[in-house]
Write a protein that binds this DNA or RNA. Sequence first.
RNA 1: GGGUCGCUAGCUCAGCGGUAGAGCACUCGGCUUUUAACCGAUUGGUCUUGGGUUCGAAUCCCAGGCGACCCA
Length: 506
Amino acid sequence: MADVGATGAEIRATRIEKAKTLQAQGMNPYAYRWERTHTAAVLQEKYAHLAAGEAVGDRVSVAGRIMARRVFGKLAFFTLQDDSGTIQLYLDKQTISQGMGEAAFADLKHLTDVGDILGAVGTLKRTEKGELSVVVESYTMLTKSLLPLPDKWHGLTDVEKRYRQRYVDLIVNPHVRDTFRKRALITAAIRRYLNEQGFIEIETPVLQAEAGGAEARPFITYHNTLEMQLYLRIATELHLKRLIVGGFEKVYELGRIFRNEGISTKHNPEFTSIEIYQAYADYNDMMTLTEAIITTAAMEVLGTLKMTYQGETIDLTPPWRRVTMHDGVLEATGIDFRQLSDLAAAKTAAQKVGVKDLDTCDTIGRVLNEVFEQTVEPTLIQPTFVLDYPVEISPLAKPHRSQPGLVERFELFIVGREHANSFSELTDPLDQRQRLEEQARRKAAGDLEAHSVDEDFLTALEHGMPPTGGLGIGIDRLVMLLTDSPSIRDVIAFPLLRPESAGGQV
RNA sequence: GGGUCGCUAGCUCAGCGGUAGAGCACUCGGCUUUUAACCGAUUGGUCUUGGGUUCGAAUCCCAGGCGACCCA
């Protein structure tokens, strides 16, 4: 193995040789199991009291990946990383020779690399420099790594490589593992809270004959035996409502949604939402529930409701501000849409305050929404419920009990982004049919995101759905908020990327 | 969809018309208290792909690929 170079291929070849050498010495470089007594974090805590230079005879067994090697003539220090943290291995020639024979220390120097997964048995001591260490009596190669890890100091920073090779990102960037641990804590805390409140989680179909429940373009797939086109769900709404019709009074589903739309720092084609439906409740109850869920999640991972996101201070302490869409727009622009009854006048007023892209707005309500999105949304940094949306952009929401032309709907905004969407659900089957048929007309006229008519859903409503409050929360955005992550790709383990080999290789 | 920027050694980056560079990693030698260990010696490249301009292209031009950011 003399004269090896340092290209990736050469490093790999060298390591394969090392694995063969280990094998020839009777050590399987791909072991079956390891009996571990302690994780790194448990050791660090249990022996926190050891003073520098102090040693104890307790024999422990650890395992993990070698993240750093500092090798001297007859002494070496390895940093071993496991799921819980890191622990230093103190490897001196004399101790290892006693445990494993004369050649063991030289083998350690020549046959192990950063990246290998090692098991080690030994006693504990805190070195004179203050690092808790396992004084190794014997070690075992558990897995020989063939590929080098990124630069130990700079790590892996290339975002494309981080997403494409997330396993490397996770090995060398500890905060990435933290983010996904927190994501798991958040979803677990939300489920625990809802279960305690008497909600049950029911899984509804991902494959659907009609993709309904939201304004979005679906993914299309094909079932061979049925010989039919199917859609991946764009929402869980219409099936969860069927369950309310069926007599469940508190249901939810936390799961994957698919929308065939653009990719950005805030959008991944598959993402996770939770939708929650509660019989005999309205959107006011849902606001309280939203506050409870998000504060529960925040306390779980942050332990406080006062937090920062990308340098901005956010206070999640309820109750959160509530403002109607009309009042929000009036505040931001001086335009009072309640005084406007003419589409052209509404557009003129909107243009006057710098709102663009009004061409497709064919009703005053849609103009209002456009003005809201462009002038108010980005300013809603602290948690804010925006209430009472135009009926034409809310085809599944119940008409407002006192405001004609509006529905009982709110969206929650934090750091200028939508985090939740909720209605007093529309339960009148005839009104619902009219609204969906209007959507179907828009779809026929070329609106790719318009709702489709789901006849079975309408039939369910005709059997009678109790008054119901519904709520959807975007889990990825919530995790972004609570982990201070700037991009949705930071909270999705394997975000969708175009394959490197795709396209016009000549 | 439009604009801007990026892609050079395993990793992080220089080089911007004249023989392809550094640090870390790798390999070899030395070293029993390191933690970005240190000292010494090597080694490592289809400069994202394809065209073009030029005596000469990593560098300039055109087109493609992949990504990042901003805008829609």
